[in-house]
């Protein structure tokens, strides 16, 4: 059996990035992800990679854009207010079809909010966040091990589709310690013929998102949408627990899914046929899983969504269910975490 070590989520993400071949990291301090920036400051130079403490999140994401345009695996991390500042760069990365990994260890908002764990940036992460019709691939780990694993997936998907990927965690996941089996180092990353490496032996490459000629931007947008349709078709991921026989299905992601799992077991003990559907990709949202369930279930099934927000993923669940089953919700934000008892009470009432 592989050796297990104890690590915080923030550190597990950092170590995964190093092992996934991340060449460049730029960040700006913000709680509750400071351990990740500090970890990269220590680890990246050890591996002869680049660490830069940027002057702002605007600069950090643009530095990542430069490193990514160079064909390197590049990453930045922040927490909610900092992620808002990164939206400019994320839109440009999406527009220039550049890969990168962005980690958001969410905290409570709006505004400065505070440093409590929250899931209030779901809309921002899954809808695009910045200007323009684009999406990032959004991955939501629920444990330290999964956070580590999803960094590899994030880089791989991002390279494959030339689109920014986001790891959406929260302060709880970032700061808690759990046993972890680290992955071995990635070698032989794919080559990127579009990268800016100097035009020796080829025609010059251009990285841009500006389309001045008439109709050019619409054509480009159509191509982007085709890419997004491909991602939606191929990359939906979720975890299901007791889905086959359940009549009440909880839907939750990240840290809140751990609480939902406890609720499911408690309901089972009471003889209720309960299950959990945990989206791992928030974009693309695993809508096909809902389709499957609704098609298969002859009997009535109902969904219960719980989030550390006032109902953001809830909208995607409702869109997926499209009126074919009841969808109830319980959420808290700003430091409140929906507890097992609160959720149980609402389900049983």
């Amino acid at each position: 059996m592989s050796k297990k070590i104890l690590m915080t989520g923030n550190e597990a993400i950092g170590e995964a990035a190093v092992r996934a071949g991340c060449d460049f990291y730029a960040g700006y301090p913000i709680t509750p992800q400071n351990e990740l920036t500090a970890y990269m400051a220590k680890r990246m130079p050890e591996e002869n990679r680049v660490f830069v403490q940027a002057e702002s999140e605007l600069a950090a994401i643009s530095m990542v854009m430069g490193a990514s345009a160079s064909g390197r695996r590049a990453m930045t991390s922040s927490s909610s207010p900092g992620i808002s500042l990164k939206q400019e760069g994320i839109s440009y990365l999406a527009g220039a079809q550049l890969p990168c990994l962005i980690v958001n260890i969410m905290r409570g908002g709006p505004g400065l909010g505070n440093i409590v764990p929250a899931q209030s940036d779901y809309f921002q992460a899954t809808r695009g966040g910045g200007h323009g019709d684009y999406h990032c691939i959004v991955l939501a780990p629920c444990s330290v091990q999964e956070a580590h694993n999803l960094v590899f997936s994030g880089f791989a998907l991002s390279d494959k589709y030339r689109a920014p990927a986001i790891i959406l965690g929260d302060g709880m996941l970032g700061q808690m310690m759990e046993p972890l089996v680290v992955h071995s180092k990635k070698k032989n990353l794919s080559t990127k013929p579009w990268a800016l490496t100097g035009c020796k032996g080829r025609r010059p490459n251009i990285v841009k998102s500006f389309y001045m000629q008439e109709g050019g931007l619409e054509e480009f947008n159509k191509a982007l949408q085709k890419k997004y349709a491909r991602i939606k078709e191929k990359e939906q991921r979720f975890e299901g627990i007791h889905l086959d026989d359940s009549e009440i299905i909880l839907v939750a992601y990240g840290t809140q899914a751990r609480i939902a799992r406890v609720v499911v077991e408690a309901l089972r003990k009471k003889g209720k046929k309960a299950g959990l559907l945990r989206p791992v990709t928030l974009w693309p949202f695993p809508a096909d899983a809902f389709e499957e369930l609704l098609k298969k279930k002859r009997k009535k099934v109902r969904f219960f969504v719980t989030e550390m927000s006032y109902g953001q993923m809830l909208e995607d669940v409702r869109l997926a269910v499209n009126g074919r089953a009841a969808v109830d919700f319980y959420g808290r934000a700003g430091g409140g975490i929906p507890t097992e008892e609160e959720i149980l009470r609402r389900i049983l009432q």
């Binding site: 060449d23 460049f24 730029a26 680049v50 830069v52 940027a54 605007l58 600069a59 950090a60 643009s62 530095m63 990542v64 854009m65 430069g66 490193a67 990514s68 345009a69 160079s70 390197r72 590049a74 800016l196």
Partner: peptide, 9 residues
């Protein structure tokens, strides 16, 4: 900032 990312890598 973009140039920093390119030159550093």
């Amino acid at each position: 900032a973009v140039a920093t990312g390119i030159k550093r890598t």
